[in-house]
Structures are given as structure tokens and as C-alpha cells.
Design a protein around this nucleic acid. Structure first.
Lengths: 140, 140
DNA sequence: CTACGAGCTAGAGCACGCTCTAGATCAAGT
DNA sequence: ACTTGATCTAGAGCGTGCTCTAGCTCGTAG
């Protein structure tokens, strides 16, 4: 349940798009910066900055950062000031990987788009024979 | 060994970037269009169009197409003419997913780039405190 | 003729990232 | 008080996509 200052695991799941299972898993794996507080009854209570951090995690995961790197990053932040250069390196390395990935995807996109275009044209003409038919020469 | 018309599994591994293990695995999974020929001694002999197809597979995999879709595609091609519309649909669906993925990555990239920029600037100034420090307000 | 690297099969194993289960507890509505 | 739904823990299980092993065979160079 939502109150002014703290959110249940279900609320956080809704806000981040992660499942409650994933949230508990992330916590076990040490991917959160701070310890999650608990109610008297033992239920997790998340703060707004927990959610902020998790939303960053989601973005980094979506862009392909492995959990291990996310953990290294969380560790650095948790240890506090003094390792900013290392944090920056981690992020910047990831940025480079993301850029490479975008380029690779754009390559694939143009290959596919071209193939789709050729295909559609032949279909429109009703003359699709020979396309992707490895027994005909020049099928590519 | 390479001869005019046929390649060993090792050659194909080199040309496609797939491991020999992966090549045998792909074959078992029915991801190839034609059956791979064998020498008298039972060794695989690949043709140039096998390599062409595998290179397409690699591109599609790099862009995130699951093996199951690749298999559906290979099945369609193997069955020969008459299902071009279905092939086109498969490819075009994938193209759309790739485009969505590029957009998502570009989003992530700008988030990261911004964060990296802020970080680098603060580091240059020697005033990095408060960055990603969930105990300070406005740490995002 | 022999050695040695490349290839063969069947099947086990692995890394990643969750996802699900069981069985119990908590908390809120009626 | 009772019911109902959310949450808890510990740990097993799973989907994807390879990767590796064991034990054997092939085939080319010397």
C-alpha cells in the first residue's frame, strides 16, 4: 500500500515494470544501493530514491548491461564518494557498447529493409521465384 | 579444407564467426535450408550458398531474432515457392522489432550520455559529492 | 606408415536472468 | 472473527543459446 513516504513491493513493481520476484531477486543479488527497510511485520518498504535507482537499473538492463556490471555499479555507489572516476568509466564503457550495438542494429535494419523491399516488389509483380531459393543461382 | 566448390566446417566457422559447435547445433535444430552434404568419410561439406544463408542468420541473430523464428523462416524457404507472403511478414515483423529496439537504445544512450556528461563535469571541478548519493536530496 | 589435427555423434553442462512453488504470515475490509 | 489478497523465505526450475566432453574416425603431411 502507498503512503506518503514508502511503497510496497507491489507498488514498486508497477512503477518499474519489474516483477515482485525480480525485485526480491535484485535485492538478494546486491543490486540495490541501500538496504530496503521493513515494516514491523517484515514487509519491504521502498523509498522514492529506491524507485529512481531501479528505474535507472531498468534502463541499463534494457540497453544490455549485464547484472554483474549493475552490481559493480551499485557497489561503487554504496561505498560512497571517492570512486567517481571508476563509476564514470563503467558508465562510459557501457555507453560505447550501446553505440556499437545501435550501429550493428542499423546495419541489420538496412539489410532487412532492402530484402523486404525486394521481396514485396516481386510479390506485387507476382514473380517471386528465385528469391531465397538456394537452387537458383544468384538467390541472394 | 577448401576446394573450389566446398568448404569444411572449420572454414565455414571462420567465414561466419559461428563456432563449429554452433554450426552443428544449428544444423540439428533445422536452421539450415538445405541438407549439408557429406564426404565419403562423413565430414560435412558446405556450399557457398550455405555460407550466404548462415551469414544472413548471423545478422538476424545479432539483431535479436530468436532461433525459433529463424527456424520458421528456414522451414518456409525449404518448402519452396508459395509462401512468400508469410516470409515477408516474418521479416517485416522483425524489422519493426529492430526499429523499436533502436529507438529504445537511443533513449538509453541519451540518458547515459547525459549522466556521463554531468559526472565528468563535476569530476573536472572536483565537486562530485551528491551524485548518486541517495542520502542527499535530488541525487538524480 | 605413422602421427596428429580436424571432424564425427550423442548427450551432458553451463551462464544468464529471471520465474515459480510451497507453506507460512500479515493486514485490511465486513 | 473471518476471509481475502499481498507478502514473506528458501530454494527449485526454466528458457535460451550455445559450449564442452568422451571416445572414436578421418585424412593429410612427413
Amino acid at each position: 500500500m502507498t503512503t506518503a513516504e514508502s511503497l510496497s513491493i507491489g507498488d514498486v513493481a508497477e512503477r518499474t515494470g519489474l516483477s515482485v520476484h525480480a525485485l526480491r531477486f535484485y535485492e538478494r543479488e546486491g543490486l540495490l544501493v541501500g538496504p530496503v527497510h521493513r515494516t514491523a511485520g517484515g514487509r519491504r518498504r521502498y523509498t522514492a530514491s529506491d524507485v529512481d535507482w531501479l528505474q535507472i537499473c531498468v534502463k541499463l538492463r534494457e540497453s544490455g548491461m549485464p547484472l554483474a556490471d549493475l552490481k559493480r555499479f551499485a557497489d561503487l555507489v554504496r561505498r560512497g564518494p571517492g570512486n567517481e572516476a571508476e563509476r564514470l568509466r563503467l558508465l562510459d564503457d557501457h555507453r560505447q557498447r550501446v553505440e556499437a550495438q545501435i550501429e550493428a542494429l542499423e546495419d541489420c535494419r538496412s539489410l532487412i529493409a532492402w530484402k523486404v523491399g525486394v521481396y514485396a516488389e516481386h510479390l506485387a509483380r507476382g514473380s517471386a521465384s528465385g528469391l531465397w531459393d538456394p537452387t537458383s543461382p544468384g538467390w541472394l
